[in-house]
Design a protein around this nucleic acid. Structure first.
Lengths: 244, 244
DNA sequence: TAGTGGTCTAGACCACAAC
DNA sequence: TTGTGGTCTAGACCACTAA
């Protein structure tokens, strides 16, 4: 099931190299990186390629660039999961917060879509979908309860017993041969109902974050609709937004 | 107080032109844009410049690009405020949702910083800050209650009577000569206390979204700390995330 | 003034999808 | 096969900051 490894784009490799150096503190927080010309010479690539990598890292907030001065490691950003995929890969998100992640598959079944699901996925009412209910833990404590719904006709390869706990990105790739291009997220504050409170071991009346997401591929085909209940008293939700 | 207008970068102008054409439906939702070569010829710029503009628009989800095929207007994105600034400019955000925005300044005063504020702004405990409490309305209904706090020593120009209702971006620019480079946002679900419920005209026990933000300039200097209480039952919070 | 990042160009070649 | 976007290069010039 492993895909063939075609050579990665040079700019991505440069991004990885520089990101690794920052993570390994080879470039210390707050310090200045070598100039674009120096990096280009060292890595044997053009300055444009280095710039493309640095622009991406600046967009994620990992570095700050100052014209006439230099490129600096952003010391405020170290613990923020600013990577695109990382935000919706709950296991990595929890791990990133310094806790031990784990997950269980509560249920996996095919059923007719609800009205809201059919609407979100642009499929006809009550058409068949595969529904996965999953619970994610941080240090053994439940933090995220997610229900993901996929149109049944997208599934090319039946899910094996281990596939239910895969990140959705990988599940869509392996079982549907689909790649996520973008997602639209609606964020709401909710009071958990009794079923959710029980599963997430709530006792007080604390509110939770509820994220409703639709994932699309490059052809604007809705791939997956997901509702995540997010216990933000345990695991904070943090974003970085860059300007320009 | 108007700044001099230096010529805008060509790539930004191209971005604006193409974005306008999409907004004006000159390029219809779902339709294919002219090829990069054609746009470059038409606008008399290099293909690299066109690509820079299109890459930005694709990063915001406004268009979808398909190698070997073309660049398409994303029909799912029309109402999503994906622009970087737009997310935290509440007046524009409300306007974008199709309602009439308005705002009032509840209070404006200098006072010592709280412990949380001093920590967020990296200033010494109880140093003087300017605090603005603002309430934003959509069609006359209160939707966002925000308290913004600026270190007093950043303020070069005293705030006039009209400055209290400016977007923070403009306020920081005009009165502090500062530009926002990025912001770190923490999102939580909260039950509003009695004071907030009264100001936002709540009656039931519905939870709200609370956003805590710190805005930084390119020198990593904290400029402003803001706590926004967000009535998401009136005004939904929606984000777009692109991959790649 | 020297060195940095910011912008832009022209051109080459590749990967991919539609016809 | 053709045309599209994806990648990369080399080089020029500009804008800004620090010394």
């Amino acid at each position: 099931m492993m895909q063939v490894q075609r050579p990665k784009p040079i700019a991505n490799q440069v991004t990885e190299i520089l990101t690794d150096r920052i993570r390994m503190q080879q470039y210390e927080p707050g310090s200045r990186l070598p100039s674009e010309d120096d990096l280009a010479k060292e890595l044997r690539v053009s300055r444009a390629t280095v710039r493309s990598a640095l622009a991406r890292m600046a967009g994620e907030g990992l570095v700050v660039r100052r014209q006439g001065d230099g490129t600096y490691v952003n010391e405020n950003i170290v613990e923020v999961p600013t990577r695109m995929g990382g935000m919706w890969d709950f296991l990595r998100l929890i791990e990133h917060s310094g806790r031990t992640p784990s997950t269980t598959l509560l249920s996996k079944k095919k059923r007719p879509a609800s009205a809201a699901e059919a609407n979100a996925l642009s499929v006809s009412a009550a058409s068949i979908v595969l529904a996965l209910r999953r619970l994610f833990f941080a240090d053994g404590k439940p933090v995220i309860l997610a229900e993901s719904v996929i149109p049944a006709d997208l599934i090319l390869q039946p899910l094996g017993p281990e596939d239910g706990i895969l990140p959705i990105k990988d599940l869509l790739s392996q079982n549907c041969d689909q790649t996520i291009a973008y997602t639209i997220v609606d964020i709401h504050a909710e009071l958990p109902d009794e079923a959710i409170s029980r599963l997430m071991q709530f006792n007080g009346g604390a509110p939770i974050l509820r994220l409703q997401q639709v994932f699309f591929n490059r052809n604007n085909l809705p791939l997956l609709y997901s509702v995540s209940n997010y216990n933000d008293s345990v695991l904070g939700m943090r974003l970085v937004h860059t300007w320009g």
